[in-house]
Design a binder for these strands. Structure first.
Lengths: 340, 340
DNA sequence: ATGGTTGATGAAACTAGTTACATCTGTCAA
DNA sequence: TTGACAGATGTAACTAGTTTCATCAACCAT
């Protein structure tokens, strides 16, 4: 009597006793109900309900070696693009009966390695990371633990981990091509810190070795609305004014847009502004932002599926390339033909 | 020999064997190192390192009854305000050696109850939720499990759970007062869905029973930039035009701002626009948004501290009121004195 | 009637830790 | 010299599940 009432949580033995069966039978009701006689199963289920019993995930984990949770390491939650990705990851992982533990890295490989270690220590079965630049300790950790890790926001079939993402260089090139098609030959390129961000690096690289005769100038600012404003001010102070501003991220484009408005520069009449990401809000900015759509939600879901498949079947999933599409809205227009 | 190499992860017994001590001693090295002789401790630590051993969190959880993780239930990750709160929660929880599992509820109490159940099933020691409206199953769950739960984004010292948040009604009133002080008597109030969002309800209630003679009209739209745009269009179609638009959330204010610009309405000359939240980007919008600052980062940290204290000491933490402050920027100005 | 097979169940040994209690050694005071 | 006690360590019993293997009854074919 006192067991059920005064004592804390019921355990498997309590349920077995209440149902008048052995612990093995209770365990079977959970894991292989078809092997248990109908009547017995009923009895056990009643006992479970009346004791409000839920199996201890920890005890299960100890036996099966499966904790059923994975970790996600993202640079920040402050950029909507990662928040979006995590949201879709979480819901997709739930369908695989997997939980998600989130850790932020601030784009610092050392912190990433540290947090990854923390996630492994608490039993993460797999990790989802962003990009391809990681600390040596990170690599040694995943090698030592034989840990399933998939990398997002980047596609590279030759990378040592499966990558689920898009071709950043191509996406940037698509954006630039749109501007050059419109006749813009002098273009300011605004981007976030590149030193520790391989996605940014790839986007820049995509522009540098492919632009057909365009005159590009680069502006590196913090990856935020404020950074975009700063870039806007910097661009307007340049000696040779570009006719278009290509932002390698939509948050930067938003900031640029706001700053240009503040300075009385009309978009797209005086300057075209191009983004890259296609955040949910970008379609509603003034003017509506032309950008390159990156399928982050689909990417989150795909990464979730990939890591789930890996931890479930032990088979390394294939890399997955998601296409990025040009979306032309109101912030870009043909260059004024004054020839600079 | 084959143990270390071919077999998977080392366990406590392996370490004990390698160090030539008993399992109890290894356990002591971890949990009460001062009771172990210096030389013995060294030996054990060497064995740990050479076997790359990390204790199994699951096994530890089973014994101590502590899983060291808490769950956070947020409506969405798409609003920067929750992303921000989670980021600060996560880092603060880490200082308490607690991990955070995130689940989104889409503002649906049923889904919240369901996800809460899921979190409890996987061993969450405590929960952090938003607001005070929850499903009956949610309450019965936390009662049955005696689960520590703190509620954020809301302050109410009489609520059955400790609340860590601000006074939403007062914050809304502060925003409105700023507008009335500027001479705006006809104000459009734009807000997100109120049916299942008690913060929104409280903000609206704060306006309704306190406005000194102002003429308020309410516009309910989806809580997003797009929703803000929609509201902007609706307001402009109203017969009696308001001189100011009070948005009960900064994301809505952003949308309103964009839409007004699109329609050629100048802010703050023709209409003042007021927000509520003070998101990181709001200070950089065009025009810079006047708003009421809500200390979400501090709130996240405070909630993390509260839940940590609760699970650690079993003592229910006190409710915590965080102040909200008016921040006047460029989107509000004195009403044109044409008397409408 | 007997042996073989299947289906349902239980006993006990696992998983990886913690911890209560026992044991052993060495020091110090009586 | 002996008893008391502290300090260091080990033994074994816990935690809450899963799983292997054994058992036993029922049914069917011989």
């Amino acid at each position: 009597m006192q067991r059920n009432t005064s004592r804390k949580r019921a355990n498997l033995r309590d349920v077995a006793a209440a149902a008048g069966v052995s612990v093995a039978t209770v365990s079977r009701v959970m894991n292989a109900p078809e092997t248990v006689a109908e009547a017995t199963r009923k009895k056990v289920e009643e006992a479970m309900n009346s004791l409000h019993w839920v199996p201890s995930a920890a005890a299960r984990a100890i036996n099966t070696g499966r904790t059923r949770f994975v970790g996600a390491l993202v640079p920040t939650l402050d950029n909507a693009i990662f928040a979006r990705m995590l949201a879709s990851m979480e819901s997709r992982l739930a369908t695989h009966r997997l939980s998600l533990v989130v850790a932020t890295t601030d784009n610092d490989p050392a912190r990433e390695a540290e947090k990854a270690k923390g996630l492994v220590d608490i039993g993460a079965e797999g990790l989802i990371v962003s990009g391809v630049t990681h600390a040596p300790e990170f690599y040694s950790l995943i090698e030592r633990c034989q840990l399933p890790v998939v990398s997002t926001s980047f596609y590279d079939p030759h990378y040592q981990l499966p990558t689920i993402g898009y071709d950043n260089a191509a996406a940037a090139r698509t954006a630039l091509a749109h501007l050059t098609d419109l006749g813009h030959s002098r273009v300011a390129v605004v981007h976030g810190p590149s030193a520790s961000n391989d996605r940014t690096q790839a986007r820049i690289a995509g522009l540098e070795n492919h632009s057909p005769k365009s005159d590009l100038s680069f502006y590196e600012v913090p990856l935020s609305i404020a950074g975009g404003c700063e870039a806007g001010r910097n661009v307007l102070q340049a000696e040779k004014q570009p006719t278009a501003i290509l932002c390698l991220s939509d948050v930067l484009a938003s900031g640029v847009l706001f700053e240009l408005q503040r300075q009385g520069v009309s978009v797209p009449q005086e300057k075209s502004v191009m983004g890259l990401d296609d955040l949910a809000g970008s379609a509603h900015l003034f003017p509506e932002l032309s950008t390159v759509h990156l399928p982050v939600s689909r990417m989150g879901a795909a990464a979730a599926d990939a890591i789930a498949a890996w931890v479930e079947t032990q088979k390394v999933p294939a890399a997955c390339l998601l296409r990025s599409d040009l979306v032309i809205r109101a912030s870009t227009a043909a260059a004024a033909s004054d020839g600079g």
